[in-house]
Design a protein around this nucleic acid. Sequence first.
RNA 1: GCCGCGGUAGUAUAGCCCGGCCAAGUAUGCGGGCCUUUCGAGCCCGUGACCCGGGUUCAAAUCCCGGCCGCGGCACCA
Length: 521
Amino acid sequence: MRERFSDIFEEAEQLKHRKEKVLPPLPNVGKYRVVRTRFAPNPDFYIHLGNARPALLSYEYAREYRGVFILRFEDTDPRIKKPLPEAYKAIREDLRWLGISWDEEYVQSMRMELYYRVARELISRGGAYVDLCKRDEFRKFKLERRECPHRFQSPNEALELFDKMLSSYFEEGEAVVRVKTDLASHDPSLIDWVAFRVINTTRYPHPLTGDRYVVWPTYNFAAGVDDRLMGVTHILRGKEHAINTLKQLYVYRALEWEYPEVINLGRLKLEEMILSKSKIKELLKKSGGAVEVDDPRFGTLRSLRRRGISPEVIRDIIMEVGVKGTDATISWENIASLNRKKVDLVAPRVMAVFNPVRIVVRGVPREPSLRSLKLSYHPSNTSLGFRTIDLGVSDDIEVFIGREDLEHLLKDGSIRLMEFCNIALEGGIRELVEVRYVGTDLELVRKEGLKIVQWVPVDSYVKIELIKPENLKLRVLRGVAEESIAEFDVGRILQLMRIGFIKLERRGRDKKSVKAVYIHD
RNA sequence: GCCGCGGUAGUAUAGCCCGGCCAAGUAUGCGGGCCUUUCGAGCCCGUGACCCGGGUUCAAAUCCCGGCCGCGGCACCA
């Protein structure tokens, strides 16, 4: 019963939330029976925050109009942008992590016969021809705005040549299918662009189809045809594709198809992070395996996930940035701030000390309340429970505090050990810093403005290794943390008091050490 | 160079289509205060922007023209 209510509440919350940032209406929705959108990545690598913009917006629009959202893998280049076998799965995972689900999924390399069929139709209608020019020869014709001799071939001649291509008669570079376009076009790339080329798949096997096909459609042909075949009504894609719409339009006109609505989106950049596919690949290669795809410095979705960024934060930011052609530079501060709000309520607080210095506290009374501290994991969220820090019965209690906090102690003469007691410097500093217990009074702390610092008992601690990205470098901080930190599962987000939020990545089998990634302060 | 798309505070965004209600809203940042056994969170106050120049109009962030700047494209890549 209660569960059902909380579900309803949650739903209402979400609705309210979503209402705040409504998407602008899609153009010409009335023209179509049902809105169909798609996200069409090349599975040659993992996707990053920039890809998340068209993916998320396409998905959200499909939902908003109760339409259909399609995932389509565009893997028609086994040579230059060779598909990465694990990327198909990784992209699915990353999308699901973002909260995206799809109604239909296609893989272009499995649809080759379809493209060949459409190509035949296009050729029969005189909309395309088989060009046997050398690349340079054609370029010359193109720049002079003249037709190459092959452009005059009849549909039947062209069809024959196309069949020859399919039967592996031609080598790479010897024949391509070109779409007839306006020769006078001001943009040379538009002129009689290539729809199919020969790729030697014996040498460059496709990870899914091996050497089964040698004639491959280019992006513009495959994507253009698929958008039609899949009934896509609204295309949301990066503005780098603007020219492609123009190219594909020639195929559409020749086949008497109507082009879908197109919205071009600006690029998303992430401050202090590497998004560029090629740069990431280069770094991975150079490191020889030391750097991984989910390196916290990268802008891949996997990296953001590893860094403990909530997928809702990414959704919120993309919705905020909106549906337009302007580029946006997302600041890490902004992401951190939004993420902090999500994480603050559920992250247990624990103490850890970096640059630890040992001090010995003398004169702590033997009262149970001072020898066995019961500390709650969160100041307000009591459901997170509490842990106990046992300090034993000896007269002297040794603890670690940070070197910087020691400076405060030396300067001010006294300091507050968080959730424990006030201490004051005693004598001088010999081998060991010796301090004296001076009570637990908090009023004093406030009145005198004492620093309140976190600490870790020397008798019971866990080693912590914290990876912190700084200026595109990874710093590894080593320190000590209270024992309870090792009770949490890998993947859990915690707050180290006065240090920041972290995500646990590894835990020693003996629970004597943990590794974590720094998220933000 | 050619073609396309944009330019609202440090960052991001709302408003621009349908001119007045915008001496421009929101988030984050920054400054200050309250609260707090965190340098976190929360609450309160403050800070700060319509790229430039012309035009249309009683009235322009919003419409028109020119300039400047930024981004993207100009592949047998996607």
